[in-house]
């Protein structure tokens, strides 16, 4: 994973709450065996509506999505962050994210930025009034600079470290090989799917 720290991007607003991963990418696009081309299927059913935000000329090149509460609920499909990144998004702003989506996003370098409800309402309003707003993200300092204000956001220390340094989580677990072996030595397997 490439390290990320600061980036500037244009934000667009999609002020709908509980956006589920079936909307982000419908299941009929999950028959692939790789990660390519999913950006084209992002919100594909909603993009059938000419008025949908991502169909607008001003939305092209957007890197931040300002969404409604509880973004990414539903299925565990990691195709959701892959599709958002395939379109060009680097971050999503919401009041909270579904647990599995959030974990998937962080592992792919898509930043889930959590803000309070009043801040989200303010950013959404400004974005809708101007079609887009310019956002500057500073992960090291956990800040978003937007429309003249600075907004702090939380992120767990480990995810932040991994994103800042491009640390691969699998490599981190593999480095615990001795502890895993010790655990297995003390805890016989509870099932055997191969034999039995």
């Amino acid at each position: 994973m490439q390290p990320i720290n600061t980036f500037q991007a244009k934000a667009v607003a999609l002020p709908i709450e509980n956006i589920d991963t079936d909307q982000i990418i419908p299941a009929r696009y999950l028959k692939v065996t790789d990660k390519n081309g999913l950006g084209e299927a992002l919100f594909t059913d909603w993009r059938g509506e000419p008025d949908f935000v991502l169909n607008q000329a001003y939305a092209q090149g957007a890197g931040v999505l300002i969404a409604g509460h509880n973004f990414g609920c539903g299925s565990s499909r990691e195709h959701a962050p892959w599709a958002l990144q395939g379109f060009g998004f680097q971050a999503v702003i919401s009041t909270y994210f579904a647990d599995i989506f959030k974990g998937n996003a962080l592992k792919n370098g898509l930043l889930p930025i959590v803000v309070d409800a009043a801040t989200l309402a303010r950013l959404t309003e400004q974005c809708l009034a101007n079609q887009t707003i310019d956002v500057s993200v500073d992960l090291e300092n956990q800040q978003v600079h937007v429309a003249g204000e600075t907004i702090s956001f939380p992120i767990d220390a480990f995810s932040k470290h991994c994103l800042l340094h491009g640390v691969d989580q699998l490599g981190y677990i593999q480095a615990q090989e001795a502890a895993i072996q010790a655990y297995e030595a003390n805890h016989p397997a509870r099932v055997n799917t191969v034999g039995a």
Binding site: E78, N104, F158, I173
Partner: peptide
């Protein structure tokens, strides 16, 4: 609990997952 594809890879390779306690 459900996991994403990156975590599927973690479990395949290590039988372990990094988890924040819910």
């Amino acid at each position: 609990f459900g996991i994403g594809t990156s975590e599927v890879g973690h479990v395949l390779a290590t039988q372990c997952l990094l988890q924040q306690k819910p």
